[in-house]
């Protein structure tokens, strides 16, 4: 039965779609023109991965839902993305840090998924692992520059760290569906990414002169559909056309 894998794939797909959506909000508004080119590249990688994951999830489900029906036509509680990816862009420091946190998780995750028992998952991992490796570099280099740049940038960077760090923990949590998918070796165990995540981020933080905060109260809930207030606004943008003009092809 594929129901757990279907759900676990949706978690992953939603992570990519929602983060891609956030990054795409920058297009045309970046701090310098070169970043107006760089950020859409990251957004396109995210959305591309989301499309593959939704398509495969839809095939497993076998009820004829395609990538768009899964991406656009669910209620807010049915989106399973972690809370980190839905956080608003705020400023360039938040945006780059969010990307670094996500990519630092996804890189070892996709590496492990290269050995998945599922052929389609292996295929998606093979493509994505290279994309997120670059995201670590791109976002990481910016975090270093902002952390060790001017006084203002250092303050903003550290503020972003304080704001986003409570959302890190959720990346390592296993839902029952993710656990079931891990038990059949279809998808990796999220908990196993902790060491590599910490190594990647610490390495950047050392160069950036940032301190890793202790988190007393991690923010959890995305995997069970308990989202923040910002998620509804994101969805009203994302779903606008499909909701306002139902059952049409575009």
């Amino acid at each position: 039965m594929s129901a757990p894998l279907f759900n676990a794939l949706l978690e992953l797909a939603d992570d990519h779609l929602i983060l891609g959506h956030r990054v795409s909000e920058w297009c045309g508004h970046a701090p310098l023109l070169e970043e107006d080119l760089a950020m859409p590249n990251m957004a396109l990688d995210m959305i591309g991965a989301a499309r593959s994951l939704y398509t495969y999830a839809g095939e497993l489900e076998g009820e004829g839902r395609d990538e768009d029906q899964l991406a656009y036509l669910r209620y807010d509680r049915d989106y399973k993305n972690c809370l980190l990816v839905e956080r608003p862009n705020e400023d360039f420091a938040h945006t780059m840090l969010k990307q670094l946190y996500f990519a630092a998780f996804m890189h070892p995750y996709w590496e492990a998924a290269l050995h998945s028992s599922d052929e389609t998952v292996r295929g998606i991992a093979g493509k994505s692992v290279k994309e997120v490796a670059y995201h670590i570099r791109h976002a990481g280099e910016w975090v270093v520059r902002l952390g060790d740049g001017t006084e203002e940038s250092a303050q903003r960077m550290q503020a972003a760290v304080e704001a986003l760090h409570p959302y890190v923990e959720e990346q390592f949590h296993m839902s029952s569906d993710a656990q079931a998918a891990a038990d059949t070796d279809a998808l990796p165990d999220r908990e196993a990414m902790r060491t590599q995540w910490t190594n990647t981020v610490s390495n950047v933080f050392d160069q950036a002169k940032l301190t890793m905060p202790e988190v007393e109260y991690p923010q959890l809930g995305g995997r069970t559909g308990h989202h923040g207030e910002e998620m509804g606004h994101l969805l009203s943008d994302l779903q606008y056309m499909q909701r306002a003009y139902p059952n049409m092809s575009w």
Partner: peptide, 20 residues
């Protein structure tokens, strides 16, 4: 952010990026 399908969204993003 409001493109009506993921295919259209990707194409539009790539196009706007091209303009940049």
């Amino acid at each position: 952010t409001r493109a009506p399908s993921l295919r259209r969204k990707a194409a539009l993003l790539a196009k706007v990026q091209d303009e940049g």
